[in-house]
Write a protein that binds this DNA or RNA. Structure first.
Lengths: 222, 222
DNA sequence: AGGGTAAGATTGGGATACCAAAATGGCATG
DNA sequence: CATGCCATTTTGGTATCCCAATCTTACCCT
């Protein structure tokens, strides 16, 4: 694989895992030494990441995109029509094997699993469901939305019951798709997105002090 | 403005206006002489355009993204939930001035206007309506979808009645938003998207010979 | 004449050189 | 001690340079 793609993937991972703090300045020269490559592939990776809005310009500087908690509500508003459409289409188009695959994914995440695992599967579930719609535009839009949500979800203080609640909702959505009940699946998906938004906002509001202490550029929480 | 952005914008325009044919090969060296700049900003512009899916890799070569007419149906399927949501939100959130602005836009396009004008406004209408939703994710998604549609719309053979039909539908959508009738607006928007898809597919099917004659890489029409 | 092939040209990937603008830091001045 | 200003450094933007891979092409052997 080209060096540029390696750098892109690594940098992306560092950003999404909060290894690089939101708002943090990135100088091309630092990245140069960090990845032991020249500025050419690094620049290409940065331009690419800018397209994914994981990196931004600040004047002529590069910064890790800040987390804008103000967009959480707009994001939910966007996801509801998208994902309700996705599950409706999934009912019509998904094969049993497709569904079994996602069930397996959920099963694989036992209660003792590490935090990263829960986080990743919680994201992938939505993308995989979208994939069942057979509509690549929906898949890309859902994947983009989940990426945007991803870092905020790390900041959430996950309690055992809230995590269990989310998992029950995932199972219910999948169950309705399996039973080919599109309207129930859509209703469940919409509720799940709203619930998740509420849990997230509540948690972040309760933990504002903690967020600031960690020094990330986190903006927009009213 | 940086040279890279200039090159990006010009190249983007050349692609969207079919000045550069879909599927056409782009060598960095040709672009270098065409834009009288070095490869560095050109490569940045290409990476950027790749993110917008207006340019692709073909092996290690760059090509103008082919037009995939097979995605027209998926695109409509994607737009319906998006844009019905947009008009519903617009009813709740748009000011009279916002609406008047879009009315003015439609008025400005008289029947004698050049083809480019009809094309541009036909795209902008949808983006501006989306903007009334106040949801930036919806705006970006609609803008992206209209960009993807843009080149196929140039290939369409516009008859006077079909153009008039589209315009009437635009006016009706806007009218329902003005009268604050979200459900009627949503129904109208969904119908408009379906109608447009049908008109486009019918026109392209009737003109397949013409398309091939022009030698563009146009794929996927069943 | 046909087909394989090797020399040459061309290409994109990456590294480096150079520059102007911007940030930094330290010194002089009030 | 605060403040303004200039020298220096650092930065990103651009232009080149080099290389390995790939594509052409023209030739030679059959």
């Amino acid at each position: 694989m080209s060096q540029m793609l390696q750098i892109h993937d690594q940098l992306r991972e560092m950003i999404l895992s909060l290894d690089l703090g939101p708002g943090e300045r990135l100088t091309e020269r630092w990245l140069e030494s960090r990845f032991e490559g020249s500025r050419t592939p690094i620049r290409a990776a940065l331009v690419r990441l800018e397209g994914e809005e994981l990196v931004q310009r600040d004047g002529r500087n590069w910064i890790v995109a800040p987390i804008d908690l103000g967009e959480l509500e707009a994001l939910a508003e966007f996801r509801v029509p998208l994902e309700t459409t996705a599950v409706r289409l999934a009912c019509a188009r998904a094969s049993e094997a497709d569904i079994a695959g996602i069930e397996g994914m959920l099963d694989a995440c036992q209660s003792g699993a590490p935090r990263e695992e829960w986080h990743r599967i919680g994201t992938d579930f939505h993308v995989e469901i979208a994939r069942l719609s057979g509509n690549s535009f929906i898949v890309k839009a859902v994947a983009g939305a989940m990426t945007r949500l991803s870092r905020a979800r790390w900041l959430e203080v996950w309690t055992e019951p809230s995590r269990e609640q989310a998992w029950r909702e995932h199972r219910r959505i999948l169950g309705f798709i399996k039973n080919n009940d599109p309207e129930a699946a859509a209703r469940e998906a919409a509720d799940h997105i709203s619930d998740t938004r509420d849990r997230l906002l509540r948690s972040l509001n309760e933990d504002r002090r903690g967020l600031k202490a960690r020094g990330f550029a986190v903006i927009g929480l009213r």
